[in-house]
Measured scan of single mutants.
Amino acid sequence: DIIVVALYDYEAIHHEDLSFQKGDQMVVLEESGEWWKARSLATRKEGYIPSNYVARVD
C-alpha cells in the first residue's frame, strides 16, 4: 500500500473530496493526475485528495 501523510489541512470542497488535517495518514487507492482517491487511516472515510497536499511515507 502507498501511505501518505498530510502536509497541510484540507477542507473538502465537493462531496466526493476527503477532508484531512496536517499529519493525518491516508492509504492511496488510486493515483490519477492531481487528485488521488484515498482512505483515511483514522476515520476509514474515502474520497479524493489534492496530491500536492501530501507526501509519501517511506
Rank of each mutant, 00 (worst) to 15 (best):
Y53V: 04
S32A: 11
H14S: 09
V28Y: 03
S51T: 09
L41Y: 09
G33D: 13
E31S: 11
V28A: 07
M26K: 00
E11Q: 14
V27T: 07
I3L: 08
A12E: 04
V28W: 02
P50W: 08
G47A: 02
W35Q: 14
D58C: 12
A12V: 03
V4S: 02
Y10S: 04
D9Q: 11
A55F: 12
V4C: 13
G23K: 04
T43Y: 06
I2G: 04
R56L: 08
K22C: 03
G23Y: 03
D1A: 03
V4A: 09
L7I: 08
Y53W: 10
S32Q: 15
S19M: 03
N52P: 08
Y8G: 05
L41K: 14
I49L: 06
V28Q: 01
G47F: 01
A6K: 01
N52W: 09
I2N: 14
R44W: 06
T43A: 06
S40W: 00
K45C: 13
I2L: 06
D17K: 15
L41W: 06
V27C: 15
M26R: 00
H14Y: 09
I49K: 01
I49T: 01
H15F: 06
V27N: 02
G23I: 00
V27F: 04
L7V: 06
Y53K: 06
V4Q: 02
L41S: 11
A42H: 10
E11M: 03
V57Q: 10
Q21N: 09
L29F: 06
R44P: 10
I2P: 04
K45W: 05
L7S: 10
T43V: 05
R39I: 08
T43I: 05
I3M: 13
A6V: 00
S32V: 14
R44K: 15
A55N: 09
F20Y: 02
E16S: 13
I3A: 04
S51G: 10
E31Q: 05
T43F: 03
A12C: 07
M26H: 01
S51P: 13
E11T: 11
R39W: 07
I3W: 03
D9K: 07
L41P: 14
K22N: 08
R56G: 07
Y10M: 04
L41H: 07
L41C: 12
R56T: 10
Y8I: 10
L7F: 02
R56F: 08
P50E: 01
V57R: 11
W35C: 10
K22F: 01
D58S: 15
K45R: 10
V54A: 04
A6F: 02
F20D: 02
S51M: 13
L29D: 03
D9N: 09
A42I: 12
Q25T: 13
I3C: 04
V57E: 05
L29Q: 13
R39H: 09
G33C: 03
Y10A: 02
S32R: 07
V5A: 12
V28I: 12
D24T: 03
E16T: 10
E16M: 09
M26D: 01
K22P: 05
Y8V: 09
R44Y: 09
S32F: 15
W35M: 14
P50A: 04
H14D: 13
S40Y: 02
A12W: 00
L7W: 02
S40E: 09
W35V: 14
V5R: 11
L29N: 06
G23N: 14
D17W: 07
G23W: 04
A55Y: 14
D17Q: 15
H14K: 11
V27Q: 12
S19Y: 04
L29H: 03
V27A: 12
A42F: 15
I3E: 11
S51F: 10
G47C: 01
S32I: 07
M26S: 00
L41A: 10
G33N: 05
G23C: 03
V4L: 10
F20W: 00
S19A: 05
L41Q: 08
V5G: 04
S51V: 11
Q21W: 03
T43R: 06
Y8C: 07
A12M: 08
A42M: 10
F20R: 00
D58I: 04
E11D: 06
K22M: 07
Y53H: 08
I3R: 08
Y48K: 13
Y48A: 10
E16G: 10
I2Y: 13
I49W: 00
E11H: 15
D17N: 15
D17M: 08
Y48Q: 12
D1Q: 15
Q21C: 04
D58L: 01
N52G: 10
V5Y: 09
D9V: 01
W35H: 14
V57Y: 08
E46R: 06
V4I: 07
Y53F: 15
N52Y: 04
Y10L: 06
M26V: 01
K37N: 02
D9T: 03
N52D: 12
E31T: 07
L29V: 10
H14I: 08
L29K: 08
L7A: 03
S19E: 08
A38P: 00
T43D: 12
L41R: 08
Y48H: 10
M26L: 11
L41V: 12
Y48G: 03
A55P: 01
E31P: 15
S19Q: 04
G47L: 00
E30V: 06
A42S: 06
L29P: 02
E16N: 07
V5H: 05
E46D: 05
G47S: 00
V27I: 15
Y53S: 11
S40V: 10
H15L: 11
A38W: 00
D58T: 07
E46P: 02
Y48I: 15
N52H: 11
I49S: 00
